[in-house]
């Protein structure tokens, strides 16, 4: 009993330590740089708009919006949040989404589409996660408003 238990406990200890330490190490490159800068963001946003256009649920939210302005402001926003050399010049997120009454499942569905947009732009899984981590805090300024 002692032997096999100790062995497992050691493995578990190593795993926890690894997870803990990795959270402390900082990478030199910003997520923006790892992503591949402005051209890659443009590609992702193009794909994202394409996904929305063919989605019956989300298209409703966008059918009256100015797509060119959306493209520009979303790109700026992603660039800024991932640590790129941009400034977001759009309206407050809360102001934009008030009155839309976006539900949790609609928001999460949008994230699903955004992930598809990144995958189609050949963004590696690990970088996708870092981008999501950088931008998803805007959720509170978007749903049930």
């Amino acid at each position: 009993m002692d032997n096999f238990g100790d062995h497992m406990k050691n493995i578990i200890l190593v795993c926890f330590t690894w997870i803990f330490l990795s959270a402390c190490t900082s990478t030199q490159l910003s997520t923006y740089q790892q992503l591949g800068g402005q051209p890659k963001i443009a590609e992702i946003v193009d794909n994202f708009i394409n996904e929305i256009e063919f989605d019956p649920v989300l298209y409703e939210f966008f059918k009256d919006s100015n797509i060119e302005r959306f493209r520009e402001k979303v790109s700026e926003h992603i660039c800024m949040l991932t640590g790129g050399p941009c400034e977001y010049t759009g309206d407050e997120m809360e102001q934009v989404h008030t009155g839309m009454d976006i539900s949790e499942s609609e928001f999460n569905h949008t994230v699903d589409l955004f992930i598809i947009a990144m995958t189609k732009a050949n963004v590696p899984h690990t970088v996708q996660n870092k981008v999501l981590a950088a931008i998803i805090h805007t959720r509170d300024e978007m749903i049930y408003l």
Binding site: I19, P124, A133
Partner: peptide, 13 residues
């Protein structure tokens, strides 16, 4: 769930 927390991989505890 921590997004991208471990070398870019998501972790859950």
């Amino acid at each position: 769930i921590h997004l991208g927390a471990l070398f870019g991989f998501n972790t859950v505890w």
